[in-house]
Every structure is written in structure tokens, then in C-alpha cells.
Design a protein around this nucleic acid. Structure first.
Lengths: 341, 341
DNA sequence: GCGGTCATCCAAAGCGCTTTCAATTATGTA
DNA sequence: TACATAATTGAAAGCGCTTTGGATGACCGC
């Protein structure tokens, strides 16, 4: 069933039927009713491809999913997607996901954008001086970035959390508890959030005249294995750190395993604060020693970004171009006073 | 830049350019070279919407993502998606993800299929007597199902793992170790895999004249919390089970927490075998007591399903309609001889 | 009774591509 | 040399929808 058939069935022109369907005012209410009724009976659905060709609108937002044979799928990604989805479903939008090799993201993003398959794109895993920004700006397609790009002019639409503030506050808490030997277990160094978190830690330490040694910093993929390795390394240092800042509860998972294996007690010998993206799988309160965390829901960020993207496409009101969310610092049992030497 | 402009630029007809681009044989090689060169220089990309309208092919596969405000995002889903993506990227396919309320999946699937946005669909989280099967069959669109539907005629294309066999074998192993009191921690009862796994356990037990009490079975969402709750319940039974079969490493996470909290030792007081979907986040060998598991990679299943789907759309050779993968039973430290009474 | 305003509706022109049917030229064959 | 055959290329007809630019009456005020 297509428009032509439907209009013939009704004895109307395609024009009128199309207008009735799309809520144009210049069609008689009685006629509109008749059309709507016929749609119900026949189960007519407009062909999206044709609609898109005619209007240029696709009703979908696009994103690039980094993936490769060896590439670990990222829980964070799934959680974010769930947030996007939650909002998209309310507006009858869908996503187009373009899987791409992580090395090929710029090109993949461009392909996606000019494919005509999407009305807007969303970009995550921002890096310092991210090359995608220039590309996005040249594209004249709505976009929102999750995170920011350190070193780039902040003149693009983004939603980010205050990573620096979060880790600054967390570090201050540990300082107040008397800790003096710190270590930071971070995400890959080229990623924006990792840069800012490190800066947060460093500036809080600097206020007390402390510094973060190179050996007390790890930058790695946020997997539990890397957490284990990093922590094992920290624990073997001559001046073993007593305060650990950790960029993810996933890293914390491995880190705590290392702590246990070393026969140390979390919250007593070692204090640890992790950033919590509110992954359903990894609740900080469910760790054997509940984790002190800086919290910000990744899923909520997904919802918000979808809102902004879809809103922009639909020309529904203006949206703030830049949003910076504060995180919460939630104290649980994994932090305690620095052990007496 | 569109086809018309490109063809004018080249002094050729749209027909010839189109054919050159799509690899038709009836175009002179020299001409084809010239066209390809021009494409490079101009950066021309065919408009997908137009292509789709003309051919009816979309170059994408669709799937429904269950999601809702309260709905927990599922790690299993993300992992599967990664597998699909890995294969899709090789063929320049993308996905269209339609987020939908879990109660609305049949309708969402239908909408997706007839939207014209996808060439094939994929369906997961199969249930007993799944109503989506009838719908899919009526659709005349290629599809592959992950899992099967207990109680339905197996005349649809699927990829499944031998859930019954896996849990049968696991149960037998525990029987051989001398266990006699069993419990099963399963996924939601309406899901096909849960039904089959339960049957596997029951039939292995039956061979020894044993049965699985109603109280020794839990059917719940596969989250660590549910694992904790279920295990706490099991541990309070008068005849406490010593052998636990567990449908997911995620459930096991919570279950083991309960075991530890009760002061029991895994692998000694309690033996546990979990099914391992090979989630990067949850490696059985990284548990404090490494887990004995039945293993089958969810990601590999994703890759394979994408292969079949894309292959079918591209008319690339015939594919087996039904595949049943065996699982591996890998013994680690979480299983041991039944404790002496 | 006439120009003017509304309220409705329609014919037809795209949107950018693929594909059928035909035309044109080059190549071989008798 | 004349004719069948193969190799290339094009014109034009869709694919199913939206939208522009009129029609066609009905209704009004003068």
C-alpha cells in the first residue's frame, strides 16, 4: 500500500492525503478523519526512504561505534546507548550505528554524516585536540559532543561532567584524611577526561605542596585487568601509596583484587575513590568493601544528549550549547584515615 | 554533488556513471577508470535515500533494543552488538536500532521491518512460544533469531547454543563429584534459554533419581543483586544445597558475595558452575576463586549472525538455516568434591 | 452582480538514484 | 561488401513521497 493507492481508494489526490497525514491546516477536518480512518484500516505506512528523499530528513541520529576484532566492547558504551535509546523511543527516532575501526573514526564519522542517513550525529570518547571537531563544524549538521576536547576552543556544543572538579574534590577528601602518598589509575592518556582528571588531582595536591610522581600514575584501557596490573605495580613501589584515585569502577574491580591478593585491607591500609558511571552491573555499594565514589550517571547523559539532538532537529526550542554537570562525591567504606606509619 | 552533476562533468549519461560505479560489466574499462577518478576528485557520494528508494535495499540490518526508563541496560546486549558490528563494518553495513519498550517488542519489530530502513532483522531474547516468530515469517524479509523458541516448530533460521546440553554436562560433573543437593539460579522463566537450561539440569538429575525442588530454583533478571538474593535464599534452606548452577557470570557475582558473607568457601563448602558468555568485564578466571564455567562467546555469535544476515541480503551463497553451537565445560577452582556431611 | 477572500483540493514538478529498452558504433563473418 | 553480433552508451521511466503554484467554488460586502 502506498500513497497513490491510498489516495485512489479515497478518491482524493496524493497531495491532500499527504497533507492530512502530516497535520497541515488546509485540509478539511472531515477529510482528515476519513484519511486517518483509512490508514487504520489499510495499515498504510509511508515509505521512509521516499519521505527522506523528498524532505531530506531521516528521523534518526547517528553515531560511530568503535569496534574491531580485538577491540573490547565497552560497558560504558552500552550504558550510554541505553540512555540515548530511552529518549529516542519517545520521539520515534532511531539510531544508525556505524561500526568503525577505532583508527578510522574521523572518516567513518564523515561517511555517516554525509550518507544522508542521519539528521544529527553524536560523538564520544573525545580526545585532546580532537580532529573530529573541525570536521563536525564543517558539516552543517547538528551534533553534540559527549565530553570536551582539551586544547580546542570550547565553541562546540557539548555535554560534559566536571572531571577536574570531581577528582579535585576526591583528592581533597583524601588529603583531609591525612593521606600523603597518592596514585592515580586513569584512562588512556589521550582521552580528554583522563587529562582533566589528572589535572584535578595534581592541582589539589599542589595546594599542599605535594606532587604526583610519574610512577604513581597509570594510563590504560579501563578494564579490570589493567586495574589489577596497575595496582600491583603501585603496591611494589618503595613508598607505597595509601590513597588511590581511580577513573572507573571497572578499574577498581581489578585494583581491589590486587589489594586483596597482597593481603591488604581496603579502607584501612589503602583508601580508594573511584569514578562511578552508575553502571548497573557494578554498583559501588555492592563491592565487598563499599566504594567511595564520584558519581555521575552515564545513562542520564545519554538521555540528555538525545534530547538536545532530537530537539534541535525538530526545531523545538533552543538548547544550551554547553553543559557541565557536577558530580557527587559519595563517601563509603573504601576510604579511611591514612594508616599510621 | 549528485549523479547528474557528476555525469555532466564527465560528459556521460547518468546511466553510464551509475553502472560504472556499481560494477556493471557493460561499461568500458577506460570509462570506468575515468568515473572512479572523478569520484575521488569530487568526493561524490551517492545519496543513500535515493539509492534505497530506487533499489529497495538499505544496506543495513535492524534490531530492536529493549529499553525503558527503569530498564537495566544489559551487558550481554552490548557484547552481542559488538560482534554484529565487527562483521558489519567489513561489509559497509550499518545497524538501525529501534529502541522499544520491552512490552512493545512485537509492534516495534514490525514497525522496524516495514519502515523500509532495513534489509534484514535480527531478534534476540527469545521466549517460549514467541509471538514474534509468526510475525517474522509473514514478513518476507530475511531474519535470523538468536536462540530458539521452546514450543514452536523449529522451522525458522536461528543460531543457538546447546543450553540443555551445557547444563546437563555441568550437572553431571557435579554429580560425579558427589553432590546431591542442587540449586539452579536461572534467567527469567519465560526466556527460552532458561527453559532449556532447567531441562538440562533436571534430566541429568533424573538419571540419578534426583529432583530439583521448587525452592531450589530461582528465575530472575540476570543481575548481581538477584544473584545475591537468590543465593541468600538458598543458603537459608534447611537442606542447604552444595552445588549451584548459575545462568550467568553476572548472577555468579552476586551469588559469590552471598557465599562470602555467609562465611562459606567457594569450591569447598559450595561448588558453583556458571554459564560464561565471555564478557570482557567478567572473566571467570579473574574471580577470587576462579569459576568453573560452560562457555560460549556471545560476541562470536554476533559475528556469525551478522555474516548470515548480510550474506543473505547480498545473495552470497546459501547459509545453514539452523545452527546449534556446543559449549565448552571448563573446570576451575569453584567446583570441588561434595563436602562430607 | 462583481471583484475579493477563504477554504479546499489537485496536477505536476521534483528529490537522486537504478534499470529497461533502444540506439549507436565497432568487430567479425560469409 | 553486406549483414549478423558484440560492445558501449543514452533517454526516459520509475521508486513513493512532499510541496509549489494554481484551480474551484462558496461566501462577503458594496
Amino acid at each position: 500500500m502506498n500513497l497513490k493507492q491510498l489516495s485512489e481508494l479515497l478518491g482524493l489526490s496524493q497531495t491532500t492525503v499527504s497533507r492530512a497525514l502530516n497535520g497541515y491546516p488546509e485540509v478539511n477536518e472531515a477529510t482528515r478523519e476519513r484519511v486517518l480512518q483509512a490508514v487504520k484500516e489499510t495499515g498504510y505506512r509511508p515509505n521512509k526512504a521516499a519521505q527522506r528523499l523528498a524532505t531530506g530528513k531521516a528521523g534518526s541520529i547517528g553515531l560511530v561505534m568503535p569496534t574491531a576484532p580485538g577491540h573490547q566492547s565497552d560497558v560504558h558504551f552500552g550504558e550510554f546507548l541505553a540512555g540515548l535509546g530511552e529518549e529516542a523511543v519517545r520521539h520515534d527516532f532511531h539510531f544508525v550505528i556505524m561500526p568503525a575501526d577505532p583508527d578510522d573514526e574521523v572518516a567513518a564519522l564523515r561517511r555517516l554524516a554525509i550518507s544522508g542517513n542521519v539528521d544529527a550525529v553524536f560523538v564520544a570518547y573525545m580526545r585532546g585536540h580532537d580532529p573530529r571537531l573541525a570536521m563536525l563544524k564543517s558539516l552543517s549538521m547538528p551534533y553534540v559532543v559527549h565530553g570536551r576536547s582539551f586544547g580546542s576552543e570550547p565553541d562546540y556544543p557539548y555535554l560534559d561532567i566536571d572531571n577536574e572538579g570531581a577528582f579535585y574534590d576526591a583528592t581533597r577528601l583524601l588529603l583531609q584524611l591525612g593521606h600523603t602518598r597518592f596514585a592515580l589509575m586513569n584512562g588512556p592518556m589521550h582521552l580528554d577526561f583522563a587529562i582533566r582528571r589528572r589535572n584535578g588531582v595534581i592541582s589539589a595536591l599542589a595546594e599542599r605542596g605535594l606532587t604526583l610522581e610519574e610512577g604513581c600514575m597509570s594510563h590504560a584501557l579501563m578494564t579490570d585487568e589493567q586495574g589489577l596490573l596497575a595496582m600491583e605495580h603501585f603496591l611494589q613501589l618503595p613508598e607505597r601509596p595509601t590513597a588511590i584515585l581511580c577513573s572507573s569502577t571497572v578499574l577498581a574491580l581489578g585494583a581491589i583484587r590486587a589489594v586483596n591478593q597482597a593481603g591488604l585491607r581496603l579502607g584501612e591500609d589503602i583508601s580508594l575513590i573511584a569514578h562511578d558511571d552508575v553502571l548497573p552491573l557494578l554498583k559501588p555499594e555492592n563491592f565487598s568493601v563499599p566504594l567511595t565514589t564520584t558519581r555521575s550517571s552515564l545513562r542520564a547523559a545519554g538521555v540528555r544528549i538525545a534530547q538536545r539532538l532530537i530537539g534541535t532537529v525538530k526545531h523545538a526550542g533552543p538548547f544550551p550549547d554547553q553543559e557541565l554537570w557536577k558530580t557527587e562525591l559519595i563517601v563509603r567504606a573504601s576510604t579511611g584515615p591514612a594508616p599510621r606509619p
